[in-house]
Amino acid sequence: MAEQRHHALDQAAVEAFAARLAAVAPAAGLLSLRGELGAGKSTFARAFLRALGVSGTIRSPTYTLVEPYDVTAPPGGPGRVLHLDLYRLADPEELDYLGVRDEADQALFLVEWLSQAVGELEADLELSLSGEASRPDRRDLVCRAATPLGEAWLARLAAD
């Protein structure tokens, strides 16, 4: 599967990448945001949502587990985005109580800690953020396609 790698990005460059990825986002799919606590997943998600036209407060779904957004997306892009943080999910079956399955074919999902929902949700695109303790202001970013939809998403990004 295709991937893009970017090294030693500062916060502005990570946010710019998020905006570029949002500009070519599909109407529905799942973007998995991976990285340790403090790696910049929520910062990336905020920049992604801002690029889709979300204004006002963008809350972290750390305690609510899901935050829905109706967006003013680019043509052909998402009209609704669900930002999920599954870190506190005790069992993947708890997703049933969140009501997110009903929107799987109609919304774009940004999911932090997708590993908590093994077997229940599948990423189309996996974005990993990492950094070195000696350089907390720099992040490495790897964006990897996991499905044909993810391949098409990365191809649109490369063509942009």
Results as ranks from 00 to 15, higher is better:
residue 2 A to D: 15
residue 2 A to N: 14
residue 4 Q to F: 15
residue 4 Q to H: 15
residue 7 H to A: 15
residue 8 A to T: 10
residue 9 L to E: 08
residue 10 D to H: 13
residue 10 D to A: 12
residue 11 Q to M: 13
residue 11 Q to D: 13
residue 12 A to C: 09
residue 18 A to M: 03
residue 19 A to W: 11
residue 20 R to E: 13
residue 25 A to H: 07
residue 26 P to N: 09
residue 28 A to M: 10
residue 34 R to C: 14
residue 35 G to I: 08
residue 36 E to K: 12
residue 37 L to M: 14
residue 38 G to D: 06
residue 41 K to W: 05
residue 42 S to D: 02
residue 45 A to M: 06
residue 48 F to W: 12
residue 48 F to Y: 14
residue 49 L to E: 03
residue 51 A to G: 12
residue 52 L to H: 07
residue 52 L to K: 05
residue 52 L to G: 07
residue 55 S to R: 15
residue 57 T to M: 07
residue 57 T to V: 13
residue 58 I to K: 01
residue 59 R to I: 06
residue 61 P to I: 03
residue 61 P to A: 06
residue 66 V to K: 01
residue 68 P to H: 00
residue 68 P to K: 04
residue 70 D to N: 11
residue 70 D to A: 14
residue 72 T to Y: 04
residue 72 T to A: 15
residue 73 A to P: 13
residue 73 A to E: 10
residue 74 P to A: 15
residue 74 P to V: 02
residue 76 G to E: 12
residue 77 G to D: 08
residue 79 G to C: 10
residue 81 V to A: 05
residue 82 L to T: 05
residue 83 H to T: 04
residue 84 L to W: 04
residue 85 D to C: 02
residue 85 D to R: 05
residue 88 R to Q: 01
residue 88 R to G: 01
residue 88 R to E: 00
residue 89 L to P: 00
residue 91 D to C: 07
residue 92 P to L: 08
residue 92 P to V: 05
residue 94 E to R: 04
residue 94 E to S: 01
residue 95 L to H: 04
residue 95 L to K: 00
residue 97 Y to W: 13
residue 99 G to K: 07
residue 99 G to M: 02
residue 99 G to Y: 08
residue 104 A to H: 09
residue 107 A to Q: 04
residue 108 L to G: 04
residue 109 F to K: 00
residue 113 W to T: 06
residue 113 W to A: 01
residue 117 A to F: 00
residue 121 L to F: 15
residue 121 L to T: 02
residue 123 A to G: 07
residue 124 D to V: 10
residue 124 D to K: 09
residue 124 D to C: 10
residue 124 D to Y: 09
residue 126 E to Y: 03
residue 127 L to T: 06
residue 128 S to M: 11
residue 131 G to E: 02
residue 131 G to N: 04
residue 133 A to C: 09
residue 135 R to K: 14
residue 136 P to E: 10
residue 137 D to R: 10
residue 138 R to S: 07
residue 138 R to F: 12
residue 140 D to N: 15
residue 140 D to Y: 10
residue 140 D to W: 10
residue 143 C to H: 05
residue 144 R to Q: 14
residue 144 R to P: 01
residue 145 A to V: 09
residue 147 T to G: 08
residue 148 P to C: 12
residue 149 L to W: 06
residue 150 G to D: 05
residue 151 E to H: 13
residue 152 A to N: 11
residue 154 L to F: 07
residue 157 L to G: 11
residue 159 A to N: 09
residue 160 D to S: 14
residue 160 D to I: 04
residue 160 D to K: 10
